[in-house]
């Protein structure tokens, strides 16, 4: 379980996050929803220790962030963070070099699934292909959690479907997934739980099926209700 308790962050006196509290369970898909600038990516970065927090705590299965966190939580940032000159095969070897949780077979399977060319250089990939390769790097780790920042941003329709397929497939399996997006439609039926953020504050967090059955509202309905009023 990824657990954030009253996490706050300031950036030169401006509060970016304020008392953010939510959990993302293993075996569930949790989605951070919010408008641009609501602090979605920042939350993911705080979980990965990529930006400091100024209050509250973040625990992963009860442990504070340490170097082992990165073996248990794989992070898929919103861009492909691999030097442009690197070949994809080199990038895979680089990952294998550093991550003891790297699953080579799964990496190969994913490369086939997304139909990626090992000899291509990272800098020459199209946006959609780069996003797919980015998923390969994150999902080929035998991690307990996968964190994805805007996996659909700027991706064409065909590739979006291909990426969406991943969530319900064995490639994600029983891991916990935490993702951010501002395009709810892609994930509406995929997510277990939604956490709505507005200006760095958790406006509401809910189980999607529960809202549908108890309030007969769609995720989008709740979002509109919460964020636009």
């Amino acid at each position: 379980m990824i657990e954030l308790v009253r996490v706050s962050q300031k950036y030169t006196y401006k509060e970016v996050l304020k008392d953010v509290t939510f959990t993302a369970e293993k075996g569930q898909i949790t989605c951070l929803l919010g408008l641009n600038g609501a602090g979605k990516s920042t939350i993911l970065k705080t979980i990965m220790g990529l930006t400091p927090i100024h209050g509250g705590s973040i625990r992963i299965d009860g442990e504070e962030i340490n170097q082992n966190t990165y073996e248990r939580v794989s992070y898929i940032p919103d861009h492909l963070a691999i030097p442009a000159s690197m070949k994809l095969s080199d990038a895979l070897r680089f990952m294998e070099d550093f991550y003891s949780c790297w699953n080579k077979d799964r990496a190969n399977e994913l490369m086939r699934f997304f139909d990626l060319d090992l000899d291509e250089r990272a800098g020459r990939l199209s946006k959609g292909t780069a996003a797919k390769f980015n998923l390969v790097l994150g999902l080929a780790q035998d991690s307990d959690y996968v964190i994805m920042d805007e996996p659909f941003a700027g991706i064409d329709l065909f590739n979006r479907e291909r990426i969406a397929e991943v969530f319900s497939s064995e490639l994600v399996g029983n891991r916990g997934v935490l993702l951010t997006t501002h395009e709810v439609k892609e994930v509406e039926y995929l997510i277990d739980k939604a956490v709505l953020l507005r200006d760095g504050v958790v406006a509401r967090s809910f189980e999607c099926e529960q809202v549908r059955s108890e309030e007969s509202k769609s995720v989008v309905d709740v979002m509109k209700e919460v964020l636009l009023t």
């Binding site: 990965m48 966190t69 861009h79 442009a84 550093f98």
Partner: peptide, 14 residues
């Protein structure tokens, strides 16, 4: 740069 390699570098398990 486009790759912003820091994202990878600082999430390496070390």
């Amino acid at each position: 740069g486009r790759d912003k390699f820091a994202y990878r570098l600082f999430t390496l398990p070390t």
